[in-house]
Nucleic acid binder design. Structure first.
Lengths: 115, 115
DNA sequence: ATTTATAGTTACCTTTTAGTATGTACAGTA
DNA sequence: TACTGTACATACTAAAAGGTAACTATAAAT
């Protein structure tokens, strides 16, 4: 939960999207609109179940994503973006663009090549 | 130094500007163009000398800021942005804007009010 | 009765990040 | 000779983040 006294709004935003996997998760959600737990695991082979759940829970608590549980077995849970989550898209895009430029200039390898 | 295998360019960018104080430092450098150590301490009353030095060193190593030492006593050191550092500005602006919106919606207090 | 599929949880450990408190260097000035 | 101003460095501690491995729940199908 958000409570600490932030020094500036940048710090607040950073707290909300600063997790190791949050950017990538949001990015896939922007792309696919709706994703299930297993689908995300397949899209991000290096994330673990625990980290995925953790990052999703935090973003849900912070109102960036929505979690819908279908009462059935085996379980089915769908994740999607809230309006706040959707509003983050341009930030992600700029961060990616800047990162692409920087990585090119400094010759830094990055796993994902899409976009 | 940057070396880990990043999953995506967002992760790379995050690593470079993700420090607790980096956004604020970059913001002040955007604003003032050139700043000395002591000036930054005064601009950010809650940062400690150690954290300031640490964040500045990392950003210098990563090529986001430039550090110029004047050989005199007492010492004088000036910090300013590199082109890569300047290119980050729109990201900061968007993160701040988004944070302002979010903080308003969720009623979250933020120390700095400027901008 | 066992297996399958899905979406988790839990305990534990390691690494990273942030923060506190104190010490250093050194020319110029009183 | 002690004091001042500036920009650090260092040792230590505390807290947060990330990661591994193993366990849980449950209806349906075999």
């Amino acid at each position: 939960m958000i409570q600490s006294p932030f020094n500036c709004h940048f710090e607040l935003t950073l707290e909300l999207i600063g997790g190791k996997w949050k950017g990538l998760i949001l990015w896939h959600l922007h792309d696919k609109k709706v994703l299930r737990n297993g689908e995300m695991l397949r899209l991000m082979p290096r994330i673990t179940q625990k980290m995925l759940t953790q990052q999703l829970r935090e973003m849900e608590e912070n109102g960036l994503i929505k979690r819908v549980v279908y009462e059935q077995v085996p379980p089915k849970v769908e994740y999607s973006l809230t309006p706040h989550g959707e509003a983050i898209r341009p930030i992600l895009e700029m961060m990616i663009d800047w990162g692409v430029e920087y990585a090119r200039d400094k010759n830094i390898p990055v796993a994902c090549t899409k976009k």
